[in-house]
Simulated scan of single mutants.
Amino acid sequence: MMRRLLLAVALLLMAAPAFAVNPDEVLADPALEARARALSAELRCMVCQNQSIDDSNADLAKDLRLLLRERIADGDSDEAVLTYIVSRYGEFVLLKPRVSMKTVLLWGAPVLLVLAGGLSLLVFARKRAGKPTGSKLTADEQAKLSELLKK
């Protein structure tokens, strides 16, 4: 009995994203709805942050789904719809950010910092390797050393 209950709960949890898009949001034209689904899979829910707006039940995700479908129904191209939504909500709304100077810096800066740190460690280590450690021998110590070496 307990196993059946757990199985039922697990099935409901796995099917939860399917309930995110409400029937009243679906466009009548299947081609437009397919475009809307494809675009909404690229947009992040600003509340959930790791879910697309299609997978989220948040009110903001619903508003974004409606806005997206409204723009598609008005005849906007896919790029125009994404540009409009990004202009209102920022780049963060995209699950896969566009390649721009900002994203190149964001992803490239850590690599450059690690390379710069490694290069500076290498230069520092090479400078230290050529330098003798310790202090010079005093005249008394030098004499004792010469005496030991003669034996």
Score class of each variant (00 low, 15 high):
Met2His: 11
Arg4Val: 10
Leu5Asp: 14
Leu6Cys: 05
Leu7Val: 05
Ala15Glu: 00
Ala16Phe: 13
Ala16Lys: 03
Ala16Trp: 07
Ala18Met: 03
Ala18Glu: 08
Ala20Pro: 00
Asp24Arg: 04
Glu25Gly: 07
Leu27Ala: 08
Ala28Ser: 09
Ala28Pro: 12
Asp29Ile: 06
Glu33Arg: 01
Ala36Lys: 11
Ala38Cys: 03
Glu42Asp: 02
Leu43Tyr: 04
Cys45His: 02
Cys45Glu: 10
Val47Gly: 15
Cys48Ala: 12
Gln49Val: 04
Gln49Ile: 14
Gln51Asn: 07
Gln51Trp: 06
Ile53Trp: 07
Asp54Arg: 09
Asp54Glu: 05
Asp55Met: 09
Lys62Val: 10
Asp63Gln: 06
Leu66Gly: 04
Glu70Phe: 11
Arg71Gly: 08
Ile72Met: 03
Ala73Thr: 08
Gly75Ile: 06
Gly75Asn: 12
Gly75Cys: 10
Asp76Trp: 05
Ser77Tyr: 12
Ser77Asn: 06
Asp78His: 02
Asp78Ala: 04
Ala80Asn: 08
Val81Ala: 07
Val81Asn: 07
Thr83Ile: 09
Ile85Tyr: 05
Tyr89Lys: 15
Tyr89Met: 13
Gly90Asn: 11
Leu94Ile: 02
Lys96Glu: 15
Arg98Met: 10
Val99Gly: 14
Met101Lys: 02
Thr103Cys: 09
Gly108Ile: 11
Gly108Thr: 07
Gly108Met: 05
Gly108His: 06
Leu113His: 12
Leu113Pro: 02
Val114Leu: 15
Gly117Leu: 08
Gly117Ala: 14
Gly118Pro: 08
Leu119Pro: 12
Phe124Arg: 15
Phe124Cys: 13
Ala125Tyr: 09
Arg128Leu: 11
Gly130Phe: 15
Thr138Tyr: 05
Ala139Gln: 00
Ala139Asp: 09
Leu145Glu: 00
Leu145Ile: 02
Lys150Thr: 00
Lys150Ser: 01
Lys151Leu: 00
Lys151Val: 00
